[in-house]
Structure formats: C-alpha cells, structure tokens
Write a protein that binds this DNA or RNA. Structure first.
Length: 295
DNA sequence: CTCGTCCCCTGGGAGC
DNA sequence: TGCTCCCAGGGGACGA
C-alpha cells in the first residue's frame, strides 16, 4: 500500500494520539511481522512517553523518552487505526475526527490481522497488516541515522537534498531503467510504483528509458513532477486502493487523480494526446504509461 | 558493484 | 456459488 504520501498521512494522523503522551499499555499479539519484533518489544514501549514523531522515507519514527525510538514500516498492507477514548482527559485533542471514529469499545473487537495495540490517555491505536510485510524495531535515538533500514536511504524528495542534479549524478552511467532507479530507495527515498508511474507521466518520460540516457532537461521535469505529485497526494490524504485508510477510517482520494496508474486501456489524460495508457511488466511489477507522450 | 529474478504473505477480483 | 489463477502499494536475498 503505502508510499511516502500514505505514510505521511498516517504519521500526521497518529501524532495527536501519541505526541507528548505515555504509552500506557502495549500489546504485541504475535511475535513477528515480516521479521521478529525486537526483544521485549512491548515492555520496552510500555510506560514510555512519546517525545515526537517524524517520517523518513516510508518509515514512521517515534521518539521515546529514555533514549530509544520506535521504527514502524507499513509494508504493503499495513494500516493504523486510531480510536479516540471518548470522555478521556486527552481525547479532545482528537476532536477533529471524533465524529468519524468508532468508539474505543468497538476497537476492542480485534481481528486476526490486528497485530499491535497501543493505549494512551487519548486513544487506542491498532496496527493491522494482513500480508505482514510490515516491520517494527526499536533503536537508540542518537544512532537512528545508522540504523540498517535508514542508513543507505537517498534524499527526501520534498527536502532540499533532492533536485535534478542529484538525479543526474545518480543516473550517470546507469543502464537500468529510469523506473527501476526511481524505485531504488538509495537513489531517492519514499517512492513506490504508483507515484513513480505518475511522475514519469507528468514529466513525459518513458519508464523503459535507460536512466543514464535521460537528458538534463527531462530530469528537471522529472524532479519537479516527483515533488508535485507527492505534495498533491499528501494534500489529498494519500491514495486509497485496498488497504490505505487515514487513521480515522476516512479514505484518501488521490487515486481519483491518477493519470496512468491502474488505467490500462484508457485514453491518455493529456488533452492534446491521442494515446492510450498501456501496462507493461517491468522488474516484476506493472508499469503504466502512455507510449505516445512518454518517450 | 549493478542488475534482474524470486520470494515472503494474504486477500480480492476476474474468469470459467 | 465456488474454484483457480493472477495481481497487489515493499524490499531483502540471491545469482549472473
């Protein structure tokens, strides 16, 4: 499911339920997700106060009092639901979505894929992940940048370290496709199949092009397109296909604005283009693009 | 190194 | 209705 905009949406959504609050109760309902949870996972979280939340690439980083941080990756199907504790002292901070959320009592009915449950004074948080490609870890906050999940990540696409010159430097001499390079998290952090397809369409660049052969002008368009599509998707609360929900259960709506992703056989969205969106397998996943206006 | 392939897991939709 | 097959937003382990 989740690429950068969906993870950002989830991080922003859980922030009022966690930030500054103590993790009163933590339950891991199985010992592993994609990998084993860290040693004494629930005990190390329980009783800790949350000092802040951030996102790096597709990881949510939750800084805890006591020197450790909690890393969360949603994999393909991971979700977090926030159920406000109606009437609890801290619940009013969640007021913005109280109206849409089921009660904390309803949240007590856990399903087979609800793997981690956290209670604070404001809410109950439930991590659900049917495919269990998600992952969690605990690591010293002062060494987070060296964590194996984070150490080799490329720049944040919405930060100052990402620009056309960065793409040019990383693409130089690469024979792999521009699609594969954009999916490489060491080149640029946080993109997945959807937003790569959308950005390439906006830039008018074929996903099949060798990365090293994309001219500088096209890289300028591509860098701008990556930033724009991510910013718009965050604004829309992400894209809801199967699994993604905002933490209050509401759907993101950026999927309605896809130009190519999942639209094989439909006419190209560019008004002056007579082309048709095609789907081609590439590196084991589907690429969607318009052969007419993406060269 | 770099690149491509396969795999982890479960569920949903299409087609028969 | 029910079966089978294919596909899915990620990313790590391999081998060429």
């Amino acid at each position: 499911m989740p690429e950068l905009p969906e993870v950002e949406t989830v991080m922003r959504g859980v922030r009022p339920a966690l930030d500054g609050l103590t993790l009163d109760r933590v339950e891991a309902r199985r010992p592993d997700l994609r990998w084993p949870l860290p040693e004494r996972f629930a005990e190390r979280l329980t009783g800790r106060r949350v000092l802040g939340l951030a996102r790096r690439s597709k990881y949510i980083l939750i800084e805890l009092e006591g020197g450790e941080s909690w890393l969360v990756h949603l994999g393909m199907s991971g979700r977090v639901a926030v159920f406000p504790r109606v009437g609890a002292p801290q619940a009013e901070r969640l007021g913005a979505f109280l109206h849409a959320a089921p009660s904390a009592e309803a949240a007590a009915a856990l399903g087979p894929h609800d793997h981690v449950v956290v209670d604070t004074a404001a809410a109950r948080l439930v991590y659900t992940d049917a495919r269990r490609f998600g992952a969690m870890d605990l690591a010293p906050t002062d060494a987070l940048a060296e964590h194996k999940w984070l150490a080799r990540l490329g720049p944040e696409p919405l930060g100052n370290g990402f620009h056309a010159e960065h793409l040019a430097a990383r693409f130089a001499g690469r024979v792999a496709s521009v699609k594969a390079q954009l999916l490489d998290q060491t080149v640029i952090a946080g993109l997945g199949n959807i937003y790569v397809c959308e950005a390439l369409w906006r830039a008018g660049v074929s996903p099949l092009r060798a990365a090293g052969a994309v001219e500088a002008e096209a890289l300028e368009r591509l860098a701008a397109a990556v930033r724009a599509v991510l910013a718009e998707a965050i604004e829309a609360g992400g894209s809801s296909l199967r699994d993604h929900r905002q933490v209050d259960g509401e759907l993101g709506y950026f999927q309605h604005r896809f130009a190519v992703y999942g639209r094989a056989g439909e006419p190209c969205a560019r008004p002056t283009c007579r082309g048709e969106v095609v789907r081609v397998p590439q590196n084991g996943r589907s690429s969607f693009y318009c052969e007419h206006c993406q060269a």
